[in-house]
């Protein structure tokens, strides 16, 4: 009995130290990445290329998702609001939900699935085919030439995509609420304008998506850089990117939301 307990404890311990080891590796990797960041910021052409692959190519999925989320929010919101006879507040409800929460969070989740997984696979494959080693042998640091531009592109794309998501969502809500249900157009917009605050709502939402972009970007390049150079290695690294990114985004969202509301009261 004690033998079995010991075995369970031992494997738990192994699991824990394994995770901690990985976390330490990620921290050292992030440190090394920060050191070369300045050098790679000056290579704008490299960053623009990655912005295209990660950001521009994600536009359609982000805009369409935003539109549908906004439409659903309008239907759900209208149903509740009409019980209190305040259906003209629909614009406020939808805009606040999108700008504060759904925009940054859903965008980050979609981005992790659409763009970050591809980045992990690409870097993992570059490693497996010795392209990173070849670069290193040509005295070009892969960290600043390959890794940093992809990381920076995630940080830049995320807030922009989140803003587009929110805008698409508001348009979706307008189509359902004003065009189809028949809420007053003026009330829809003017209430929204009166209640959405730039500092508290828009900037805080932006801040969230910058944090999410940093986290998701770091996870995707880290998993790719340390992927085992085999088919299974790259497959599991890609999966890990999506899973860890999604969980990190949701956890970070809770922390950030609590901090932001505490700052208000």
């Amino acid at each position: 009995m004690t033998g079995r307990m010991a075995a369970i404890l031992e494997s738990l311990g192994h699991l824990l130290t394994g995770r901690l080891d990985r976390l330490g590796l990620a921290a050292r990797f992030a440190g090394a990445l920060v050191l070369v960041l300045w050098m790679s910021i000056r290579r704008t052409s490299l960053i623009i290329r990655e912005l295209y692959f990660s950001g521009v190519r994600s536009l359609s999925i982000i805009a369409v998702s935003g539109l549908f989320v906004g439409m659903v929010l309008a239907v759900q919101g209208y149903e509740v609001l009409q019980r209190y006879g305040s259906t003209e507040s629909l614009g406020v409800i939808v805009a606040l939900s999108l700008v504060r929460e759904l925009g940054p969070v859903v965008t980050a989740l979609l981005f992790a699935g659409r763009a970050s997984s591809a980045v992990t696979a690409e870097i993992g494959l570059m490693r497996a085919t010795e392209q990173l080693a070849a670069m290193d042998m040509m005295a070009v640091d892969p960290l600043s030439r390959v890794i940093a531009p992809r990381f920076l592109a995630a940080i830049v794309s995320m807030p922009l995509l989140a803003a587009i998501f929110s805008v698409a969502g508001i348009i979706g809500a307008w189509i359902i609420g004003v065009q189809l249900i028949g809420i007053d157009d003026g009330a829809f917009w003017s209430q929204m304008q009166a209640s959405v605050d730039v500092r508290i709502d828009v900037l805080d939402g932006l801040l969230k998506s910058i944090v999410f972009g940093t986290a998701v970007g770091l996870i995707s390049v880290f998993e790719g850089y340390f992927a085992a150079p085999t088919a299974e290695g790259i497959a599991s690294a890609t999966t890990r990117t999506v899973v860890i990114s999604s969980l990190s985004v949701l956890m970070l969202d809770l922390v950030l939301t609590v901090m932001m509301f505490r700052g208000l009261s």
Partner: peptide, 23 residues
């Protein structure tokens, strides 16, 4: 150090097993 190593590597060429061309 990394800087000196990279300076030295500019004078070294390496052909990898499968070429390692940038795809």
């Amino acid at each position: 150090g990394k800087k000196d190593l990279y300076a030295l590597r500019r004078r070294i060429g390496m052909l990898f097993q499968f070429g390692a061309l940038f795809t």
